[in-house]
Design a protein around this nucleic acid. Structure first.
Length: 687
DNA sequence: GCCGCAGCTT
């Protein structure tokens, strides 16, 4: 209301000229505080007082220009546009103001259109302020070719080496995935501010080259470039991705030392980094110390809990978040829905679905994708499909969700059929699509099909994605073609071979009964400096046990305890019990179980019982079976195995006792068919 | 004759 009184004062002066000047200075005073309401009031006053008509032409244009540029700065598109259209010959400054407004508000197409109109209607060339706006608009639209043409214009008008123009060009190349082009521009820049370095870092991270981002950062440090908060915010996602906790902590220290923590996004990025490195405690501390939190703060924390397997705590933030007045957005709700999918909590998932519908967020693609996935993981594929059919068809995310939903519900051929539909509808598949598709082909285990998809992946270039290549190695191994699997493996650059790829090949040899090859690949992996993890050890021990390589397996087990200092898990013990049990070293297997530092599970005892059956060892068989009866009383298979041992050594009375035990349990706890099956097995053995 | 423009988290 203050604005009205100011306006009133201004209009009291009889002299229209003074009044117009006063209006201009008032308008300009609204620029920094972005006082749109006051501006509108003043605008109305200018119209009713006739200032625009009674002033000189010069002052009238001046007033209009100021009104327009301030509307544009305040993001009031409709008002700015109306004024702009009324002007017969807008100045370069006003064109810039309009283009800036469009490119900042996301109306990028309008920005580019206006630029083209400007080129044809303005007697002078665009200036150095114009190009960054237009290139940014092209960046947001991923219009690489148009952007390059605009840059060509910039060169011809002498702004090709302008720092701002080059920085926006860098960002455009990075956003369009052209990291080499960006690199070239960066290398040829004469003058590099911290903005250029930051653009390179964030660009590399966005394009999946987190390692390159770290390299750039190190160069930046070597050259003593002063980093700012944007550097931190750009680099922290790389730390999270690469689990570079040490560097992440260092950056945290830098934030504290240099006082870079004035923006929320810095703290948000730190929380995100800590959660990705598995440090929920440190993330919680930052969260607690923040005096102001935004929707991203809550979302990264919720995501962090989910990532670290603590979905309960994630759900627990839902209410406090809203009590603090922060409204969840599409990212928040999608994360929570995916947490419901992890836990198969259909009811809770439906509650979030309902909330999303009420908030009109249901049609957002990431929310839709999360919902499709959630219903599929809760085994409600019908609901998944119903949502899917109401989704715009050209987006990859929902298609991937429905493909993985088919797989989750055991429909391998359905997955492949839908993938073909996807291609038919001209939807672009991505790396994730092929990861899912390859698991579908794995269940079919058809070598001919594997060759076909291999060829397809080469033609489309998707084989260069590491996870996809890993999936293909797995597919070939599961089809029994270890030669092809190894060939793909050899085709992957040594530095790109991650732990998962190695483990897949080791498991491949193991499952094909070639324990020696599995162990040899394992040794190669260690030689290349890749640290084996739990899964690798499980695979290699499993391989030994399948191939009967007892002593080799024992050596590896000891190696695991000593050199790699990994704590063995139950899977490892199961492999070892299996390994020893198969060759009849039952007593050793039993002793190994006794050395376990934690609760033994059914798999370990099951392995021992299985070995006792083969070697007809009653004493240990009874021990193992008793433990199993405690651990899983309703699993009739265990009773059958024990009965088998008794039967094998001729202790028919004991076998008969087991049979009656099974009958009791079978009638009470297992489905009828299983009890009948069990009874028949026993009968067969007793006869 | 207004004197602005680039990079950054879920």
């Amino acid at each position: 209301m203050n604005g009205v009184s100011e306006v009133a004062v201004a209009s009291k002066t009889k002299n229209g000229l003074l009044s117009a000047v006063q209006c201009v200075s008032l308008i300009q005073s609204y620029i920094v505080p972005r006082s749109l309401t006051k501006l509108k009031q003043l605008h109305a006053h200018i119209i009713t007082s006739g200032l625009l008509y009674f002033s000189s032409y010069y002052h009238s244009v001046h007033l209009r220009s100021n009104l327009l540029s301030t509307y544009a700065l305040c993001g009031s598109e409709a008002n700015a546009r109306k004024l702009f259209d009324e002007l017969p010959k807008p100045s370069l400054f006003l064109y810039n103001a309009m283009i800036r407004m469009y490119s900042q508000s996301g109306s990028s197409v309008e920005a580019v259109k206006l630029f083209i109109r400007m080129l044809s209607s303005v007697p002078f060339r665009a200036n150095k302020f114009t190009y960054p706006f237009v290139i940014k608009a092209c960046r947001d639209l991923s219009w690489l070719k148009v952007g390059v043409l605009v840059y060509g214009k910039a060169i011809r008008s002498g702004h090709g080496r302008d720092m701002f123009v080059l920085n926006s060009l860098l960002a455009m190349y990075m956003n369009c995935g052209k990291t080499e082009a960006a690199r070239w521009v960066f290398d040829t820049m004469r003058e590099r501010t911290v903005v250029a370095w930051n653009t390179m870092i964030s660009g590399y991270v966005k394009n999946g080259f987190a390692n390159e981002a770290l390299v750039i950062f190190n160069q930046m440090v070597d050259l003593d470039v002063e980093l700012d908060s944007a550097t931190i915010v750009s680099l922290l996602p790389a730390c999270g991705e690469l689990k570079e906790l040490a560097l992440g902590r260092k950056l945290h220290a830098v934030v504290e030392e240099k006082g870079l923590g004035d923006s929320i996004s810095v703290w948000n990025s730190l929380i995100d980094m800590y959660t990705k490195c598995g440090c929920m405690d440190e993330a919680r501390v930052i969260f607690g110390n923040m005096t102001e939190r935004d929707v991203v703060t809550w979302t990264v924390t919720i995501n962090g809990y989910i990532l670290n397997g603590d979905e309960r705590s994630a759900f627990g933030l839902w209410r406090p978040m809203q009590l603090e007045g922060i409204k969840p957005n599409t990212v928040t709700i999608a994360s929570l829905i995916s947490a419901c999918a992890n836990l198969q909590e259909l009811k809770r998932g439906m509650c979030f679905h309902g909330w999303a519908v009420r908030q009109k967020l249901e049609d957002d693609v990431i929310v839709k994708t999360a919902l499709i996935d959630m219903y599929a993981k809760c085994n409600w594929l019908g609901l998944s499909f119903r949502l899917f059919t109401r989704t715009p068809e050209n987006q990859t995310g929902p298609w991937n969700a429905i493909l993985s939903g088919c797989m989750h519900n055991g429909l391998a051929t359905g997955t492949i059929k839908n993938f073909k539909q996807m291609l038919y509808k001209k939807v672009d598949p991505d790396g994730a699509t092929f990861n899912i598709l390859l698991t579908a082909y794995v269940t079919l285990a058809d070598l001919e099909q594997a060759y076909n998809i291999h060829g397809y992946l080469i033609r489309t270039g998707f084989l260069s994605i590491n996870e996809v290549a890993t999936g293909l190695v797995d597919l070939y191994s599961k089809c029994g073609s270890l030669e092809s699997a190894h060939e793909i493996f050899n085709g992957i650059a040594v530095r790109c071979r991650d732990i998962i790829l190695w483990s897949v090949l080791i498991a491949g040899y193991g499952n094909n009964g070639d324990g020696e090859a599995a162990v040899s690949v394992f040794k190669q992996m260690v030689q290349f400096g890749v640290k084996p993890n739990e899964v690798t050890f499980t695979s290699v021990l499993h391989a030994c046990s399948h191939a009967g390589l007892v002593d080799l397996g024992l050596d590896l087990f000891k190696l695991m305890l000593k050199e790699h200092q990994s704590l063995p898990c139950t899977d490892h013990y199961t492999c070892m019990v299996d390994l020893l049990g198969r060759v009849g070293r039952l007593q050793e297997a039993y002793e190994l179980i006794s050395t376990m530092r934690f609760q033994s599970n059914h798999a370990v005892w099951g392995a021992l019982l299985g070995a006792c059956v083969i070697h007809e060892n009653v004493a240990l068989g009874v021990v193992a079976a008793r433990r199993l009866f405690e651990l899983e009383p309703e699993n009739t298979g265990n009773y059958v195995l024990l009965a088998k041992i008794y039967a094998a050594v001729g202790r028919w009375g004991d076998a008969e006792n087991i049979r009656s035990m099974i009958n009791d349990i079978g009638l009470r706890k297992t489905p009828a068919h299983s009890s009948i099956e069990v009874r028949d097995t026993c009968k067969g053995m007793l006869q």
